[in-house]
Design a protein around this nucleic acid. Sequence first.
DNA 1: TGCACATCTGCAGAACTCTTCATATGTCAC
DNA 2: GTGACATATGAAGAGTTCTGCAGATGTGCA
Lengths: 130, 130
Amino acid sequence: MQSPTGVDACAVKLVDPERVSAVHARMPSEQDVVDTADVFGLLGDPRRLKLLVALLDGELCVCDLAAVTGMSESATSHALRLLRAHRVVSVRRDGRMAYYRLDDAHVRMLVDLAVAHTEHTDAIHPERSS
Amino acid sequence: MQSPTGVDACAVKLVDPERVSAVHARMPSEQDVVDTADVFGLLGDPRRLKLLVALLDGELCVCDLAAVTGMSESATSHALRLLRAHRVVSVRRDGRMAYYRLDDAHVRMLVDLAVAHTEHTDAIHPERSS
DNA sequence: TGCACATCTGCAGAACTCTTCATATGTCAC
DNA sequence: GTGACATATGAAGAGTTCTGCAGATGTGCA
């Protein structure tokens, strides 16, 4: 037997306990982490991301969004519903048309940054991105 | 029969054809969208996000990362493997220890922004974020 | 050499997400 | 009112992802 407390070794003998508690203190609450991951998760689907990129310039109707992104109208509507549920986009109805707009400043910034980064990366590695 | 081309009506009669083609022209390539969504997808899991937040300040070993995030060491290792495969983190080995660091400037920026936004949101709505 | 340890990997069940089809709702034109 | 249309919704199947367990790898120490 080496150390009496050796059972849960790694939980007790941390390599750098000070850093661990400092980092732990800086860590956002569980709820905040989950909410943030949620937002990133919404951007983590190519089709939703395309929709959001399309909406960067202003509002578009479902029909046009489907055309721009190459998605079926049903798939477009489903995706928009999810985005709407998370308050990322908002709708304006005019007769039987529904015009969607990007309505979350933080998400807009993230999408903008991502597009800019893509273009920048392409400029450096034209044959391959990321 | 109404219109001879009425079959794929919505693909033909767009509401705002000019905007549609302008937005379509601005849209990044399919590959770029998929790559970008991939990165967001990595950030879309609370556990991976926690790991990345923990790594903002500098390198940590698997053991300490597990302690900070409250994950099992196995789960930590699995998550780090994914992040490693996408070049988001890199490893430095020292004997039997493995020290991970956040090695992607773009991801670092995204995580930084997200944490800052979380804190900002908390300041406005202390009882509820997002 | 042999044991302890930190980390890594393969696997399998559970859980979740996406996509499509079929149908529903509400609006407009006649 | 009727029919065409834009959008929304429900449900099911396919596919993917997550999680924990069990065992593998490689290092250090006696």
